[in-house]
């Protein structure tokens, strides 16, 4: 009889361990989200984590030139016209530059947009410093409104020698609906 109770106890102990392993792995699935962000931020792998810089650069490396190309795309469900006003720009690392993007809302209602940057090659994103960017905030355009949106940036002087060209791409998303939901949620 002692044998069978000890079997029940052993079963119970093992089941508790296995269920806790399952709970841990379920949480691990969600923990992968912040882990992924941290990993990308450290390594610059997916080109999303452009550096947000609070002060302008002072050191300029006149000996080198890096070409920065600009491209834009519109996600489905976003009716705006969105274009870079400069196709590319050649800069010395450390030099502060301003480029402009034009956006136009051809519809008859207000639409809120959010631009998401991506840099290619990915690791180059670690050296692109933005001091001001329209992508830091959501942009609201009234019906028929046309705006020029600015981007102030510099490329860190410690950028590796082999990076001679990099591309900064913006995808524009329509976030009107989700903003509306958040505003309604904020009322309560």
């Amino acid at each position: 009889m002692t044998d069978s109770t000890s079997l029940a106890q052993r079963n119970k102990r093992l089941i508790v361990k296995l269920f806790s392993a399952i709970a841990v792995m379920f949480c691990f699935g969600f923990a992968l989200v912040p882990l992924y962000d941290v990993f990308c931020e450290v390594t610059g792998i997916n080109g999303r984590n452009v550096v947000r810089s609070s002060q302008a650069s002072v050191l300029i490396d006149k000996s080198r030139i890096v070409r920065l190309e600009f491209t834009t795309s519109i996600s489905p469900g976003m009716p705006w016209h969105f274009k870079p006003m400069t196709k590319y720009i050649d800069v010395h690392p450390g030099e502060n530059k301003v480029v402009r993007f034009s956006a136009f809302n051809p519809t008859s209602s207000q639409i809120i947009g959010q631009a998401i940057p991506s840099v290619s090659p990915g690791p180059a994103s670690l050296y692109l410093n933005k001091t001001e960017c329209f992508c830091f905030d959501q942009q609201a355009l009234n019906a028929g409104e046309n705006v020029e949106m600015g981007l102030v940036f510099f490329i860190s002087p410690d950028i590796p020698k082999h990076i001679k060209t990099m591309t900064l791409s913006y995808t524009l998303f329509n976030v009107t609906d989700s903003v509306a939901t958040q505003e309604i949620a904020a009322l309560f």
Binding site: L18, A21, I22, A23, M25, F26, C27, F28, G29, F30, L32, V33
Partner: peptide
């Protein structure tokens, strides 16, 4: 199974 089925559950939940 114990290691990865919970991760699948997390994925579909997301």
């Amino acid at each position: 199974l114990i290691a990865v089925m919970p991760v699948l559950a997390a994925t579909v939940t997301m």
